[in-house]
Simulated scan of single mutants.
Amino acid sequence: MERSTTMFYNTSFGSIHPALQKLERENLVTVRQEANGKRVRKIYSRTAKGAKTFQDWISEPVAVFKTKDESMLRLFYFGHIEGDVAPHIQLYIDEANNWIAALETLLRTQDLSKVPTEFQKMAFFQFATMRYGLDVIKFSKGWYEQLLEDYKAQGFE
């Protein structure tokens, strides 16, 4: 089963187009069409109003730290799984290992000094966000490893 997952924010292709249309209706972006061989591409650009709206949004303090983690919802109900749950927990550990490897590889290739000066501030925070994601995933992996150990110690298998 293929699933679409991004590192920080999940969305579907079916929700992107309506979101762009809404931004266009609100005059936050403009759209122009560009021929690309046989296909026509839509190119979206922020308007001045869109840039201001973005600045206002990004500058607002976050009121409450919230985490939306579907794995915690599923974990809450793991007691309803018939049979051994250990393989299900191991899947989370394996997924964490995949993300850790990918993020560590990506971060090793980053060099702020090679980023054009006008983009270094943006890149600094983008790299910091990747490091945060890596740290969260490493913590989660350790947490799931401890959960698996505790589960096995209970003899539920």
Rank of each mutant, 00 (worst) to 15 (best):
T30D: 06
L103R: 01
A19M: 14
K42N: 09
H80K: 12
E118F: 13
Y9G: 03
D94E: 14
F119W: 09
S15M: 14
R74F: 15
I58R: 05
R108C: 06
Q154K: 00
K138N: 01
Y44C: 04
F125Q: 03
P87C: 11
P61Y: 05
Y92C: 02
F125E: 05
V62N: 08
L23N: 01
A153W: 03
D84W: 04
K38E: 15
A128P: 08
M7I: 14
W99Q: 04
R3W: 08
P116I: 14
R39I: 07
I93P: 00
E26V: 06
K49T: 11
M72V: 02
G133W: 06
H17M: 14
R25G: 06
V64H: 06
L23D: 03
G50R: 02
W99V: 04
E34C: 07
T47F: 09
E95G: 04
Y77P: 03
L75A: 04
E2V: 14
N98P: 02
L107N: 06
A63T: 12
F76T: 05
D94H: 05
P18D: 04
G83I: 14
Y9N: 09
H80Q: 15
N97D: 15
F13E: 10
E26Q: 11
A63I: 13
G142A: 02
F76H: 08
V85P: 02
D94P: 03
L75K: 00
I137F: 07
A96S: 06
A19D: 11
F156A: 06
A86C: 11
N27C: 07
L20H: 03
A51C: 10
Y44R: 05
Y132W: 15
L91S: 10
E104K: 01
E145F: 01
I89F: 02
F8G: 02
H88Y: 15
D94M: 07
Q126S: 09
A86K: 02
I81Y: 05
K66T: 13
Y44Q: 04
F13C: 05
I137R: 02
K42G: 00
L134C: 01
F8V: 07
F125N: 02
G155I: 02
A96C: 06
N27F: 07
F139Q: 07
V62H: 03
D135E: 15
D56C: 00
W143D: 02
A63E: 15
F124L: 10
E2H: 08
T11K: 10
F127A: 12
I137Q: 05
I43F: 09
G37W: 08
T47W: 06
A123M: 07
R3A: 08
R25N: 12
N27L: 10
K141N: 04
R3I: 10
L134Y: 00
N36A: 14
A35S: 15
D69Q: 04
F65S: 13
S4E: 12
A86Q: 05
K42R: 11
L103H: 01
L20V: 05
R32I: 05
G37M: 08
E26G: 01
F156M: 09
D150E: 13
H88R: 09
P87Y: 09
L106W: 12
K38G: 11
S113G: 01
K38R: 13
W143F: 08
K152R: 12
A96Y: 01
T47D: 09
T30A: 00
T11Y: 15
D135R: 12
A96G: 03
P87E: 12
Y92T: 03
T129G: 10
T53G: 08
V64M: 09
F78I: 07
I43P: 04
E70Y: 09
F124M: 09
F125I: 00
F65G: 09
